[in-house]
């Protein structure tokens, strides 16, 4: 990651709009050709794309390889699940002196999920950011495993089996278990996240963040405290991952520790690298490629990991900036 991610430009805005537009027309096309299931696949792509875009804020722009993001994704999901559980079972949630009845109203629980996962990210970020490079990878892995085992230890909420959300969830009168509602709500969230991150990395904050990834000492010499910037980015990125997890839990009405395993963290990193780290929208392509390949190959053969692995290796060898690198070269030629 020697290359400083370039300052976002007008072409990036165009790409973001194009991607959102392409995703937005998936449902009508899917219904027209009689493949409504495609909408669910697209929803899954959108949700993971949100997490990947969030991760890439620290990965591509901050040079921090985090393996904590599946854990934070899960935290977001569990906030939705646990609040809905208490609402459904009519049992108040006691957090120290506070007693809360729980809720299935996503207007309340979604922001809470973002806040809690951002808070968790900030807390773990304070410790993790003392390290660098491979040490940072490993300490975030450690925290991810702790979150994972925490999920397993939540016997009340299903432990390893996971938590089935039984009550009804609602979002301002909309029902997220309806596939079209769920898709467009998720897509709207992706749009907000992409616009936010795109503006952020273009701002002074983004410039400092990208500079710390390149040369921390020089940033320090300018009198800017790099850790504060990195920590802010890390918390924000964690909040976005939490949002993705919360959306997934709402759509599937299910969340489990399996969603928090370190392998899933690795999957998110792979999505970012496959798509390309130097833009905000690259990880969206990466998430789509990863999930579609996984689904497509595994419905062809049970030995799908072989072709999947070979494709990943091939992309690592030949595509230096992931898919966006290939697209850029194709556009230029």
């Amino acid at each position: 990651m020697a290359d400083l991610a370039p300052t976002p430009n007008r072409r990036d805005w165009f790409a973001i709009l194009l991607l959102l537009a392409v995703l937005a027309v998936v449902p009508p096309i899917a219904e027209a050709v009689g493949q409504p299931f495609a909408i669910k696949v697209a929803s899954r792509v959108v949700v993971f794309a949100i997490a990947a875009v969030g991760l890439n804020l620290v990965l591509g722009f901050g040079g921090m390889v985090s393996l904590l993001h599946a854990g934070l994704f899960g935290v977001g999901g569990y906030v939705i699940g646990i609040l809905a559980w208490h609402d459904f079972n009519g049992e108040a949630l006691h957090l120290g002196p506070i007693a809360y009845a729980g809720t299935g109203n996503l207007l309340i629980s979604l922001p809470l999920a973002v806040l809690v996962s951002a808070g968790a990210a900030a807390l773990m970020g304070v410790v993790s950011l003392r390290t660098n490079g491979a040490y940072f990878i490993m300490i975030t892995l450690a925290f991810n495993q702790m979150l994972y085992y925490l999920g397993v230890a939540l016997q009340k909420y299903g432990g390893e089996d996971g938590l089935q959300i039984q009550g009804d969830l609602s979002l301002a009168g909309l029902d997220p278990s309806k596939r079209l509602v769920y898709f467009y709500v998720s897509l709207a969230a992706l749009a907000v996240v992409m616009v936010l991150v795109q503006r952020l990395v273009g701002s002074r904050f983004g410039m400092v963040l990208r500079a710390t990834a390149q040369n921390e000492r020089r940033v320090k010499a300018l009198g800017i405290p790099p850790t504060r910037y990195r920590l802010t980015a890390f918390a924000l990125s964690g909040g976005i991952a939490g949002l993705a997890g919360a959306l997934m839990a709402s759509g599937q009405q299910f969340i489990s520790p399996a969603d928090m395993s370190w392998v899933r963290s690795g999957d998110l990193v792979v999505m970012c690298v496959l798509g390309g780290l130097t833009t905000v929208w690259g990880p969206v392509l990466g998430a789509a490629l990863f999930l579609l390949l996984e689904l497509g190959l595994s419905s062809l053969t049970n030995a799908w990991q072989l072709p999947f692995g070979l494709i990943v290796i091939g992309m690592a060898v030949w595509l230096h900036d992931g898919l966006i690198g290939a697209i850029r070269r194709w556009v230029q030629s």
Binding site: A134, G266, G309, V312
Partner: peptide, 17 residues
């Protein structure tokens, strides 16, 4: 390091299968 992670992650899948 990320490219290294990517290529060796691919190798894990291939070797396992």
């Amino acid at each position: 390091h990320l490219d290294q992670v990517l290529v060796t992650f691919g190798l894990i899948l291939v070797f396992n299968q």
